[in-house]
Amino acid sequence: MVGKSLKKWWPVFVLPTFIAFVIGFLWPFIWGIYLSFCRFSTVNDVEFVGFDNYKKLLDPVFNQNFGHAFWLTVLFAFLSTVLINVFGFLVALALTGKFKGVNTFRTVFFMPNLIGGIVLGYIWNTLVNGLLVSFGTHLTLKTSGVAGFWGLTTLLLWQQIGYMMIIYIAGLNNVSPDLIEAAKIDGANSWQTLIKVKLPMIMPSITICTFLTLTNGFKLFDQNLALTAGEPKKMTELLALNIYNTYYGRAGRVWMGLGQAKAVIFFILVVAIALIQLRFTTRRETQA
């Protein structure tokens, strides 16, 4: 009954969102796929070239470090996912304890999350450069790719541990006290309770957190741009920034189509990783 009377009202209820969705996502997305098969520099000089852009990506003259950015992003995304989740979980475990100041500590850990990527990047740019000098090295973020990579990893840890901590705390609080009590009566020590009872019970939280950190790691752009901008010599350039630079970094008709082709590959990669990861961890969930 509700459905029937609601249906006639579609121009009010669903049309505005749908139109905005078409303007803001659907049309640009479809057009974007089409443009990856074209050569263009503005919307007025589009010329269809088939798979030419994709073929050029295999050519080092044209691909502008795409391979390096690709593997760097894969490494970065997996490394940051593991570290953020391990530390996020450990902090959550500690801060579900009952000692003085727990709530304040939670507040502090979560805080960096509210700050935007560009601002975070400049905060850490200042901090990392200062640290490099105080430790007596002659390096800066402009000259050391290694410092840039670990700086970016630390930045992301600092930003996201708090977020994942909140989700893990919610998960841990949902573990029924009866279950833990039962484990204790059966003679389990606290380590065994953690591994055999708590961990399987919070598998849903682990699924969500790894999903979020993995996709965030792959899509990272603002922090990368502000912290290192890919310096030195594009050594710290992740995929999203690589695409952006291919698109807008150089003049000439060849680059935009190439950038769009890279974006399509990037999109397929992100969706594929997200799907594989979801399937992998949700399967563990049902077993638990």
């Binding site: 969705f21 303007i23 996502f25 659907l26 049309w27 997305f29 919307v43 698109y247 769009q260 974006a263």
Partner: peptide, 21 residues
């Protein structure tokens, strides 16, 4: 399902076409 799908798509995929639109 289109809405769900849009959440997974990286912004770089639509940045040029969106700004032109």
């Amino acid at each position: 399902y289109l809405c769900l799908f849009s959440m997974a798509v990286p912004f770089q995929m639509v940045m040029f076409t969106l700004s032109k639109t």
